[in-house]
């Protein structure tokens, strides 16, 4: 068993190390320009040298992402509840939801920028727009997938609609809400960066653009690296919240 566990932790690491070695080797042997493809070593070096700058750029992106995601939850979950519980709302709202979702967010970004300006608001709006859909869809799916046996039990006890919702439907939907939230948080990072690309004065996306424009390849790549680390950390935070809020998940699989 412990051998299998060792394998599980060693092999992903090994994959990364091999990739980095190949990358480093290629940049060293081919003599490719730093602007086009910096070596992992250069990226790491810049990450340390420009730590302060990167940290400064991370903060706005983090705020945009988290607020956009929070807004997506705040609006998405109640919307999912109404869609799941009312046939009319479902019929009336779902097509609009799907339609808004099929608009490419990159295409709508310039318009959002005109509406909300260069500040944090436009990025927040974009992060919200991309994060919102998976939250609604997964939550609504979860609410509709309440085990019929539990509903019948509640019915046999004459539970009120509010009790059924709070004590049966919502807890039963919680794993779905978290599944949606995990997708949403990673999408929110993308939304924030799209906003920063279209027009901004700060943030990691902004840094990628400006570093690229100034031919500072390693810095642009370092900003990218920080972006992916940000995404991973935010995802892990949601996963942690999931474990804390649903301690029953994972029990029984001895």
């Amino acid at each position: 068993m412990s051998g299998a566990r060792m394998q599980r932790s060693i092999f992903p690491l090994l994959g990364v190390v091999v990739l980095l070695c190949l990358w480093q080797g290629y940049t060293a042997l081919s003599g490719i320009s730093q602007i086009v493809l910096p070596s992992p070593y250069d990226i790491g070096l810049v990450s340390i040298e420009q730590f302060h700058l990167l940290l400064q750029a991370t903060w706005p992106t983090l705020v945009e992402t988290v607020l956009g995601f929070a807004l997506a939850l705040l609006i998405g979950v109640p919307l999912a509840v109404s869609v799941a519980n009312s046939r009319l709302l479902n019929l009336g709202l779902y097509p609009i939801l799907v339609a808004t979702q099929s608009i490419p967010k990159v295409a709508i970004a310039p318009i959002i920028l005109v509406w909300f300006g260069l500040g944090i608001e436009s990025k927040l709006a974009l992060a919200f727009l991309v994060a919102f859909f998976p939250v609604v869809v997964d939550t609504a799916t979860g609410l509709k997938a309440t085990p019929p046996g539990l509903l019948e039990l509640a019915h046999s006890l004459r539970a009120s609609p509010l009790q059924i919702f709070m004590k049966v439907q919502m807890p039963a939907a919680l794993p779905f809400v978290f599944a949606g939230a995990k997708v949403a948080i990673t999408l929110a990072v993308i939304g924030a960066v799209i906003g920063e690309f279209v027009g901004s004065v700060a943030g990691l996306g902004n840094l990628v653009l400006s570093a690229n424009a100034q031919l500072e390849g390693p810095l642009a790549w370092a900003a990218l690296l920080w972006l992916s680390v940000l995404g991973i950390l935010l995802f892990s935070a949601i996963a942690l919240a999931e474990r804390l809020l649903m301690p029953w998940q994972g029990t029984g699989r001895h």
Binding site: E152, L153, A154, L157, P171, M246, W248
Partner: peptide, 25 residues
């Protein structure tokens, strides 16, 4: 009522599952 399936709520402990009816009332 006892159903064909136990219909227990996975998010409730055994005791809280048993107490569900009194909680509803």
């Amino acid at each position: 009522v006892v159903f064909q399936q136990p219909n227990l709520m996975p998010w409730r402990s055994v005791l809280k599952n048993v107490l569900f009816p009194v909680e509803i009332r």
